[in-house]
Design a protein around this nucleic acid. Structure first.
Length: 433
DNA sequence: TCTGGGGTCCTAGGACCC
DNA sequence: TCTGGGGTCCTAGGACCC
């Protein structure tokens, strides 16, 4: 009994996507930046070897970047999203049981492939993805998702594995867990790793062997589940249908602090409009809108302010004007004048499929009004699809103010070194000579 | 000077009800 | 003046993930 779980994980995904279209980056240190070019969110192996940390601010790494000629890219989500879809479709050819876990990872259920040899099968997957997409992946296989994750970690680090490792017997399981730092276990984050180390628990094996009640008491059901999974008892099933989203968020940091209420309102209105658009794309409606604003959270002088509040919509809706109005009402309750705001966001709550959403008893709009406003939204989305995002916007979202001419609806953002959208924009297709 | 964005789940405590 | 127990719902906060 029990399943066979494989995890396929793209190596240094964002960097690898850049390399597919710029092969001269092969062997060079490369990093990819977050929004506003603020943090380093992906690193090539060469960049990792220079001790450039994940999530580190760019400005703290200027020196090492200059000294070692590290190539720096702004993030290009249009490209990464498209490359991700290609990888997932290759994986779907291997088994119908694929769970897309994140932009660069998927779980596969491989029961029945044991006779062929699981590791052999893993190599087959790895080479096929490489051939069809140009992307390198690692494959880990085990009796639970957490063991598959652990196997992938090890396959990545240990070059002798050739990028594929299957945990098929007890000896291998013990060896892998003994070589895995507690903080590298899937489900054990920074805080818990710190807590466990303070109790002398350093490796995944130490943790797996800890008495269950002790783990349960300090780490709750989540910790207990991780422990069982490491022992080879699966607690997490495959989840091939993407779950229905419950919340949806649009937020940005500002490249420059925002103080004026008008500017903040325009940004929040722009986030609300974008959130409503995402909502309609998903065929969903929201019941409430939450807004947050915050000043610089890295300030140490105690001046940090964070305000957040939610406002219920009159009834479940996906209409830009309903959502914007609620967002601005929420903003009015938390805005404090005279502060330098660094970040703001809009979150839509209690999402439900549009088809089964019930109108509130108190806010039943007459059919005609509702139809008219539905077709207005459809027209808005249609134009923005054809002409590019934000071709048409509500006045509340303000005018274009980005530093590099990219329309962002009242938000001040920068993106200085984005690669072309090779695969999703006709004007930016790679040219073969 | 400069520090991402978008999610999920669990738990503890309070309000409220019977 | 004395004074129960249990269930449910909501919220805030904390942990985790990529």
């Amino acid at each position: 009994m029990g399943g066979v779980f494989a995890l396929v994980d793209c190596n240094n995904f964002f960097v690898s996507c850049e390399r597919v279209f710029a092969p001269e980056l092969e062997g060079q240190p490369v990093v990819v930046l977050s929004n506003n070019d603020g943090c380093i969110i992906a690193r090539s192996n060469e960049a990792k070897a220079l001790d450039i940390a994940m999530g580190a601010p760019l400005f703290k790494n200027r020196d090492v970047i200059r000294r070692h000629h590290v190539r720096v890219y702004s993030s290009n989500y249009a490209l990464y999203g498209d490359m991700s879809a290609r990888v997932m479709s290759v994986l779907a050819a291997f088994t119908p049981e694929v769970e897309v876990y994140s932009i660069d990872e998927a779980f596969l259920e491989l029961s029945g492939f044991e006779r062929r040899g699981l590791e052999h099968h893993g190599h087959d997957i790895r080479e096929t993805v490489r051939r069809w997409t140009g992307l390198p992946v690692s494959v880990g296989i085990g009796a639970s998702k957490t063991l598959a994750k652990a196997a992938t970690e090890t396959a990545k680090k240990d070059l002798r594995t050739g990028g594929v490792l299957a945990i098929e017997d007890e000896v291998t399981r013990l060896r892998v867990l003994a070589g895995l730092d507690i903080g590298d276990i899937w489900g054990i984050g920074r805080r818990w790793a710190q807590m466990l180390k303070s109790h002398g628990i350093y490796t995944a094996l130490d943790f797996a062997n800890q008495p269950e009640p002790w783990v349960r008491k300090r780490m709750g059901v989540g910790g207990a589940r991780t422990q069982l999974e490491l022992r080879g008892i699966p607690c997490l099933d495959m989840d091939c249908q993407p779950a229905d989203k419950k919340t949806l968020r649009v937020s940005r940091s500002f490249a420059k602090p925002v103080r004026a209420r008008q500017d903040l309102s325009e940004s929040v209105a722009a986030f609300a409009a974008r959130a409503a658009e995402k909502l309609r794309q998903g065929g969903l409606v929201a019941a409430a809108v939450s807004v947050f604003i915050r000043t610089n959270r890295f300030r140490t002088d105690g001046s940090f302010y964070r305000g957040e509040t939610a406002v219920a919509l009159p009834g479940p809706s996906s209409h830009t004007n309903h959502i914007t109005r609620a967002a601005l009402a929420a903003l009015a309750r938390i805005y404090k004048p005279g502060l330098d705001y660094k970040q703001a966001g809009v979150m839509l709550l209690d999402l439900a499929p549009r088809a089964q959403a019930q109108s509130s008893l108190f806010a039943q709009p007459d059919k005609k009004t509702e139809q008219r406003s539905d077709s207005l939204m459809a027209a808005l989305d249609g134009i923005n699809t054809r002409m590019g995002r934000d071709a048409l916007r509500y006045g509340a979202a303000g005018v274009v103010k980005s530093a590099n001419g990219k329309p962002q609806g009242g938000v001040y953002t920068v993106q200085n070194s984005r690669s072309p959208r090779y695969t999703t924009n006709w004007r930016e297709l790679p040219v073969v000579r």
